[in-house]
């Protein structure tokens, strides 16, 4: 846990808009890694993911003069990467036989993990809770807790309202919490032991 790149991303947007190549290269490498990780949650096909990354990142430089008009570039590019990737996956799935076409790319079931060192009984409960999450809940949890996007950014990336995002995330978290309801003392002991 704790993976916060976006602290780095506060000022570079302005610098890119001004045409600073170094700032762009830095953002490029950073977003490449993040988009790669995000994209592979929807498909194991890294070529498609890399194509989408490259297109979106190229557009940052090409349209750099419009960057200042984007309220939240980070959320904006997460969203445009997601859209770009979904478009590509949809185009690819059209070549598949009808029964193999998925209506919408799904955020991988196994993308959220449970700390292997947690007590096995608790781990089983948490796993059950994770399994009951929808693809959208998993994705929102990932964007909020791995990528560290704010609720507002998550909402923008997913193309839904902030309120809906709160609901989705809260429901998922409470589901997890509900399955952690071992006696608190036991729980704490177990968790502390794990850390």
């Amino acid at each position: 846990m704790c993976y916060f790149y976006n602290i780095l991303l506060n000022t570079p947007w302005k610098n890119i808009a001004e045409g600073q190549r170094d700032a762009y290269s830095k953002v490029y490498l950073l977003l490449y890694t993040r988009f790669y990780n995000y994209g592979l949650k929807f498909t194991p096909d890294e070529t498609v993911v890399e194509d989408a990354i490259q297109e979106v990142l190229l557009s940052i430089w090409v349209d750099r003069r419009q960057l200042t008009g984007i309220a939240n570039p980070e959320a904006y590019f997460f969203s445009s990467f997601r859209n770009n990737l979904f478009r590509k996956l949809k185009a690819l799935s059209k070549q598949l036989p009808a029964e193999m076409i998925e209506p919408e790319p799904e955020f991988a079931r196994d993308a959220i993990l449970i700390d292997q060192e947690i007590h096995h009984e608790l781990r089983a409960r948490l796993q059950k809770a994770l399994d009951s999450l929808t693809a959208r809940q998993r994705e929102a949890i990932f964007l909020r807790f791995y990528e560290g996007l704010s609720y507002e950014d998550v909402a923008e990336a997913l193309g839904i309202t902030t309120k809906a995002t709160y609901k989705i995330v809260a429901r998922a978290l409470l589901e997890l919490k509900g399955n952690m309801s071992l006696p608190l003392t036991v729980l704490l002991a177990l968790l502390r032991h794990a850390h």
Partner: peptide, 25 residues
């Protein structure tokens, strides 16, 4: 602890891949 129990599968690009992509761009 509940929040910290959330862990994620991390997919990392192969070494040099991001750099190569940047150079191509």
């Amino acid at each position: 602890k509940v929040l910290e129990s959330l862990t994620f599968r991390v997919d990392r690009p192969a070494a040099g891949r991001a750099q190569a992509s940047l150079e191509k761009t």
